[in-house]
Design a protein around this nucleic acid. Structure first.
Lengths: 149, 149
DNA sequence: GAAGATTGAGTTCTCAATCTTT
DNA sequence: AAAGATTGAGAACTCAATCTTC
């Protein structure tokens, strides 16, 4: 059983390289945002007044993970977290001005990281890879949905 | 910029599902092995008397990570770690009998997890996905090689 | 100095248990 | 009871700094 040719191993390597590239390009832009933090802050921008549980489901993360990620985004001043008056269990998230401008400033780094990630493939291959990954992931939508705590 | 269709996001989702399936199938087999631990123990089996730095390079992990992984494999009795008499900086790793039998016992779970991971694709698509992932990863071999500490 | 390894710090990720609120 | 959130525990991952040995 050759471990290195298993889909699971390739999944790990591809993801590992993806986050490493993201970190490098982000640092090169003078920004301090991790891949999760970027995904979260963009989701908050696109879904004003979203609560943490919905955010977790939207970008497919565990609730506990999102709690910690939001902690750091609040510390950095990119997001505010307030108790929802209508349902005091929920925490309403909002984007700050600093968060909005950071998203704009980060876009170049994000695009660059994506391009480098698939730089070994031609454009037809890139499209195929994206399509197949999406198809495989969508087919297993229930797995690791992590909706519950 | 739609985050959910970026290669980086798909890479994370695919990897996330991969490890979740691995954990489920391993638990179902009554075994307690994580994906990294499995990769490490197989690499030790296939490369007797390997040292930690070489192991880290072989399966593309950071040295510090491998140190912790080996700690747990030693605790579980699957691997032994001894100082190399010829070069006292290096730690020689060896597989125990328990480690060898665990690898055999785990094989079914590993194969099952891989099959489920690509269960949304037909066999031609599976082959293409594996080929493209390998191509993309190989092209970026230098990135995240993490050879140094 | 260079290489193998370890320690310490910080983020990510998941699970189980708990707390509050509905 | 169910849902949103938090806390605690453990594994994984990386980086910087340090230690020992070469």
């Amino acid at each position: 059983l050759a471990v290195s040719s298993l889909p699971g191993h390739l999944a790990r390597r591809f993801h590992q390289i993806s986050t490493a590239l993201f970190d490098v390009e982000m640092r090169r832009s003078g920004l301090d945002l991790t891949p999760v933090q970027y995904a979260a802050v963009v989701a908050v921008r696109d879904n004003p007044a979203i609560d943490q549980a919905t955010l977790a489901g939207l970008i497919a993360y565990d609730r506990t993970t999102i709690g910690g990620v939001v902690d750091r985004l609040v510390d950095k001043g990119f997001v505010t977290r307030m108790t929802n008056a209508a349902d005091r269990r929920a925490r309403v998230l909002s984007l700050t001005e600093a968060g909005a401008s950071t998203i704009v400033a980060a876009e170049g780094a994000v695009v660059r990281a994506q391009e480098i990630l698939v730089s070994g493939l031609n454009s037809s291959e890139r499209e195929t890879l994206t399509k197949l990954l999406d198809k495989a992931v969508t087919a297993l939508g229930e797995v690791s949905r992590t909706g519950k705590g």
